[in-house]
Amino acid sequence: MCIIETQPVIETRRLTLRSPGAQDIPRIAALANDPEIARMTQRMPHPFGLGDAEAFVLHVAAQDPARAVAFVIEHEDLGPVGVIGLHESGDPAPETGYWIGREFWGRGFATEALEGALVWAGRKWKRRALMAGHFADNPASGRVLEKAGFLYTGEVRRPFSDARGATADKRMMVWLA
């Protein structure tokens, strides 16, 4: 029988990935209220305020940990720098997504967090494959996914992005444990 962690914690070299809590709401709202972050996601609205951050934290707390998990990405010195999540979708494998606050771009935090989440997904969540995608106009996210071992599938989807208010090309990738 597989025991599912209800609030897993993942430690990497510089980061801790942990469940978001009420104490994180102001920081999540401040970091996420950036149009350049929101437009690179499907479901994040812009503007993103305290109410949105509170709704996110409550949504994560109510998730079935066997089907979805989300983490605040916390740097040992800088505090929360972003969010990463894994969730079952309509694909055969769960999907992962992440965002990092703009002031922390280019420091390798997304790659480090993703690599930690992948190890956890394989060992603790018992997943052998994960899906991910990035908007075609966000090649930096594609590089993060490639560094973590994701491969392009050749599929391009056109999901609606809440922040863009429009559909956009999303290049799909897969990771196999």
Rank of each mutant, 00 (worst) to 15 (best):
E76D: 14
F71T: 08
A32C: 09
V57Y: 05
E95F: 03
S19L: 13
E88L: 08
T111C: 13
I37Q: 01
A55N: 13
R123F: 01
P80W: 00
A29Y: 05
A53Y: 00
K124T: 10
D91H: 14
P20Y: 00
E76H: 11
A55M: 09
L58P: 03
V9E: 12
F48Y: 15
K126V: 02
W120T: 03
G116Q: 06
D77M: 03
A22T: 07
G106L: 14
V119Q: 15
P65R: 02
V69D: 06
S19T: 13
I25C: 03
A30G: 03
R39P: 04
A68V: 07
R102A: 12
L50G: 14
F104M: 10
M44R: 05
K124M: 09
P92S: 11
L15V: 14
A22D: 10
I84G: 04
F109S: 02
F48N: 10
F56T: 03
G85N: 12
V81L: 02
E36V: 04
P26F: 00
P65I: 05
D64Q: 05
A110L: 06
E103S: 12
P20F: 01
D64R: 03
H87P: 00
F109D: 02
E74K: 10
T41G: 04
D91A: 14
R39G: 05
A38C: 15
R102C: 03
E54Q: 14
A30V: 01
T41P: 04
A62K: 11
R128E: 11
T41S: 10
A70N: 11
P47S: 12
E76L: 11
E112K: 06
A110K: 07
P35D: 04
I73L: 15
A93H: 09
Q63P: 05
H87M: 11
V60H: 06
R123P: 01
T96Y: 09
